[in-house]
Write a protein that binds this DNA or RNA. Structure first.
Lengths: 205, 205
DNA sequence: GAACTCTAATACACAACTGTATCTGAATTC
DNA sequence: GAATTCAGATACAGTTGTGTATTAGAGTTC
């Protein structure tokens, strides 16, 4: 198996990616604080040297991790907006939206971890808030477009609705993860759907 | 100033309470993992000896802390139910409800911390879920009673609505804490109110 | 291919936390 | 009021982590 010979830049990039991937797993499993730099590097197959030569600090790596995830979600939502808004099936629409935001548990845990960390670290909070507001704006746009196509008025400001939607998704996702027995599999969608159909359609009378 | 002479039991109880109070502050500030036993005891004016003679572990103390907070909230909600359900002002109703659940930031952070911890520790999760389900049931009852008095049908199962409400409150509270500038002061109530008035009143047409 | 450069490994010095084991002094018992 | 008991302080041994300074070995340049 002829292993490709990497340039310095490629090799460095590979290391960074592997460290980020390993960090995602480790942090989701143990939490940001409890995860040591060695946990990350060990998992990735490197030593601490590799880490400090690629990242300033654990926080620094963490924010890059979040950005990477953020970009993925943004692109996914954008795609939904472009291709799928035509379907009038709210339930399906929401299910897609929801799974776009939290396809897997790792992602949820990472963002929950981030929210907590942001309460304590002002600099981090600023950077995180920027990402969150971006996400909010995309969702707000999503909602606006949705209502427009449905020819219905917005029941509140799109930005506020977007925030509420994010909170709601987080909350439902948590219960879904934490009590898989307690809720039926589709509880997430059905609760969301009940609330949103009332919110968006209710005002039509 | 004649300082009261305490019995052994009283003194022990005082120590426990002081440790719990100090732990709430420390954990909210630094996070569960980052808070050392010494942080707690130091803040409370004791040494590690006092801690280990009162609690099995940090987790053990933490769950007691949550229980204490849980009981407070439960009682508060119960009281709301008994005295205040007569008022028909939804906005005011929600504001009270919301401030009952998260009067201060410490409490929010503690529960966020708990949710994350529960993802990782199965035993802890079981104990936490028990508390959450209790809270859910009280809220579900709250919602049921509310709808009954308003003579309107429930737009979804009370239990599911309660979960959604908890998630929504959490989400809004987070944004409220994290971006105090971004949202108007009453955003929490107004978003909640927009969603809920649609949810509960929308179906009446 | 020799000199150079940069990535990542290794070595080091230091700090922090944990849990137990032992000790002390104040409350309790008789 | 002497003996006892228990809450909490102190001492200890071991583990784990951090960040920097140095080194080795690949990629790069000429």
């Amino acid at each position: 198996m002829p292993r490709k010979r990497l340039t310095r830049e490629e090799s460095r990039e590979q290391t960074r990616v592997r460290l980020l991937d390993a960090a995602a797993v480790a942090i989701a499993k143990k939490g940001l604080t409890a995860t040591s730099v060695e946990d990350i590097t060990g998992h990735a197959g490197y030593t601490r040297g590799a880490f400090y030569s690629n990242f300033k600090s654990k926080t620094d790596l963490f924010i890059e991790l979040l950005k990477r995830d953020h970009v993925d979600v943004q692109e996914g939502l954008q795609q939904l907006l472009d291709t799928d808004l035509s379907g009038k099936d709210l339930q399906r629409q929401l299910a897609l939206f929801y799974s776009q935001c939290y396809g897997d548990n790792t992602s949820y845990v990472l963002w929950a971890e981030a929210r907590l960390h942001s309460v304590r670290d002002a600099k981090f909070r600023q950077r995180l808030n920027a990402l969150c507001l971006e996400k909010r704006d995309v969702i707000a746009y999503f909602i606006t477009q949705f209502c427009k196509r449905m020819e219905m008025p917005l029941p509140a400001s799109a930005a506020d609705l977007a925030l509420a939607m994010m909170g709601l998704c987080d909350g439902v996702k948590y219960f879904n993860m934490s009590m898989p027995g307690e809720l039926p599999d589709n509880a997430a969608e059905s609760v969301l759907s009940a609330i949103f159909s009332a919110t968006f359609f209710g005002s039509r009378a």
